[in-house]
Amino acid sequence: MADREEFLAHIRSALASGPCIGAPPSASPPAATPSPPSRDDLLAQLERSAGLQSWHFVRAANADEATARVVEIAKGHGAGTVVRTAHDVLQRMGIDAALAGAGMESVVLADGPGGLDAEQRQATAAGAAVGVTGVDAVIAETASVALAPRKGMSRQASLLPPVHVAVAMADQVVGTLDDVLALRLVELAEAEEITWYMNLVSGPSRTADIEQTLVVGVHGPGVVYLVVIEE
């Protein structure tokens, strides 16, 4: 078995043969991606790209409207149980009470007193019709929702149910992937723990592996909603 030092020494000896033959490097810096300046522009760009990425895009004027729309969506998919993360925005929306009022059970996929153990969390998520999450950021250019799981933010709520509803605040919308990665680096610089996981979700789960014909919902959610609260 090769240890690190031996492996790296072997690479160093391979590199001793000199530089790569190919086109000379370019001196020009990479073109900057212009980010639309205003919030309205970003939202308009997001709305366009969300449509192209097959999100159902919902603009809500305030938290109450968002709550009503999420309840409507869950009901429309015949949900008995809705699983969710512990994002602040969902607490503020009073989502549990609103779902209960419409005859649906809302389960937070989190550990803790009165919480579910790991096995129960997985079984509940796998059996739920709808998963609701907040987001860490939204990329306007590609309609990508960034989800960074941590305490209270299960990976499963946006993965196992056939329907995913992501709820974002308008000020979480950024222009490009580079903006999200730059934010991540700032957070990491301040974080105590350098271990992290993040998913960018840019529409429904999809495949075209049989005769190049598009099918959605092959493993992850096949129907996805992006609700943006504008207030």
């Binding site: 299960s154 996981y197 840019s202 992850g220």
Partner: peptide, 24 residues
Amino acid sequence: ATGQRISSYVSFVTGPRRSDEEDG
């Protein structure tokens, strides 16, 4: 590859689950 603006999922994995994470 497929002409997509971005793929449906892009996952960033840094080590195993965090100490306070619910799953992973």
